[in-house]
Amino acid sequence: MKVRFCFSAEQLKNIALVSMVIDHAAVGLIEQSELASGAAWSLCGTAMRLVGRVAFPLFAFMIAEGAVHTRDRRRYALRLLLLAVISEIPFDLVAGGTWLFPVDQNTVFTLLLGLLAVWVGDLICGTGSGVSYGNREKTGDSGRKAVGQRRFPLEYERYIRVLAAVPFGLAAYYLKTDYGFMGVLLIVILYTLRTEPQFRTAVCIVFLFCMYMDFYGAAACVAIFLINRYNGEKGGGNGRIFYLFYPLHLLVIRGIKMAVGL
């Protein structure tokens, strides 16, 4: 049966960006202002936060896909680290209304830790695009490095990858990054089950409900529906727009709040 519509990576990323802006606007303009005391505005904020639950699973999926397709994971990780550091003050201004908000660190730190967890899982299991052959690199027709030899049976490899992610999840928990331990595990799950879409769907739905433990989990599951419509294509546009967009949209939200006196 032919799928009537599908999304490229660029389209999924754009959906995630719109969802993220709506979510952060709800936090910065409603929850962090006197508007939150009004019933109508409070309801509006809740609706916007529901829309915003779609963003993180999509970004987690983009990290999982990026881990597969990037030519240099070191540069990929360094770009995420730089973005996380640059974005922390704008994030604190929106999330906590102050220059320093140690209770919550921005989401990019979680994405970075998820990428590192995936990378370490590849190295332990001996498979994946994060595995190289030392000085003797093998390349296929695409010019990409070939994967290593699987060290564990597939049914065990899944658990090993999750266990390998635990230190990075704990780092997210203790550093108080947005989405924390569960956010890191979601990235690893999306990466590990990327070739098993039906199993991935079932696991992710259960995982997201456990992650939120309320109706926000149902909203987040919309992202899984979108991910299942991914066509495997990059799509047009600038693939690195997120690196500029993320801190700028936070500064814009903060500027709007100051301009209207919220």
Rank of each mutant, 00 (worst) to 15 (best):
G128T: 10
E155M: 09
V118R: 11
F152K: 07
T201F: 07
V162S: 12
P102R: 00
L111D: 12
V166T: 15
V103W: 00
P197Q: 03
T139Y: 04
M182I: 01
W119C: 08
T177S: 13
E137Q: 10
L112A: 11
T110G: 08
L111G: 10
I187V: 11
L170T: 15
N106L: 08
T127A: 11
D178Y: 01
E157Y: 05
V184M: 08
F152A: 09
D104C: 00
G114P: 11
Y173H: 14
G130R: 09
S132R: 06
L186D: 01
R151N: 12
E155I: 14
R161W: 11
Q105L: 06
V184S: 11
A117P: 13
G143I: 04
Y173V: 05
T192A: 05
V206F: 12
F168V: 13
F101T: 01
P102G: 00
I124G: 06
R161I: 13
V166A: 13
Y159R: 09
C125S: 15
R194H: 09
V118W: 07
P167K: 14
S129M: 07
L175A: 15
L123H: 10
P153T: 12
I189S: 02
A164Q: 13
R136V: 12
A164H: 14
G114C: 05
I189M: 07
E137P: 06
E155V: 12
S129W: 04
G130H: 09
L154Y: 10
T195N: 07
D141A: 09
G128N: 08
G148L: 06
V162G: 12
G130F: 05
L111Q: 08
I205H: 01
D122V: 10
T107F: 03
Q198F: 01
Y179D: 07
Y159H: 08
L115Q: 13
L163D: 09
V131Y: 03
F168D: 14
T201K: 03
G121Q: 14
Q105I: 00
D178L: 01
V103F: 00
Y174W: 15
V120H: 12
M182W: 04
L190S: 02
K145E: 10
T195G: 02
G121D: 15
T107G: 03
L123Y: 06
L186I: 02
F109E: 11
I124P: 09
G180V: 03
K138Y: 13
F199Y: 01
D141E: 10
P167A: 13
V103R: 03
F101Q: 01
K138A: 10
A165Q: 14
A172E: 13
T192Y: 06
